[in-house]
Amino acid sequence: MSETVRLYFDVDGEDFTSAGQASVQVKKSLRQLGIPPEIIRKVSIAMYEGEINMVIHAGGGKAEVLICEDCIEIRLRDQGPGIANIEQAMQEGFSTAPDAIRSLGFGAGMGLPNMKRYTDEMKIESEPGKGTDITMRVYL
């Protein structure tokens, strides 16, 4: 996995309306690099879901995208409340999002399942009270 391009983003936890800016920027960068459209779609959807999760649950965080010869790796780090039961959180429909978020069309319990669906590898490390680290890979 020889690294060619690395992108960093701070995900603002305060502003829900601008959530997704990092994902949109990644989409643009991947397009400029000539990455195939279906790969771009997978990466940007997985990253957007992660970004939204960080805004809803963790007050923001940091995102890093590594574009390598054979894959694209997305690393998401936050210092939020963590995930108490990862297996439960991975089930479609399970959500702890507040009602205000649901009324905007989020919080359907599809975020983590979509991240898994659209990536080839996904690893979640989380400790309640400390935060969550997620690493996802999409192979080219």
Binding site: I45, E49, G105, F106, A108, G109, M110, P113, N114, R117
Partner: peptide
């Protein structure tokens, strides 16, 4: 669909 994550998971390009 109206649930945004649902749409992202299911809608096609």
């Amino acid at each position: 669909g109206d649930l945004l994550s649902w749409v992202m998971g299911r809608a096609q390009c």
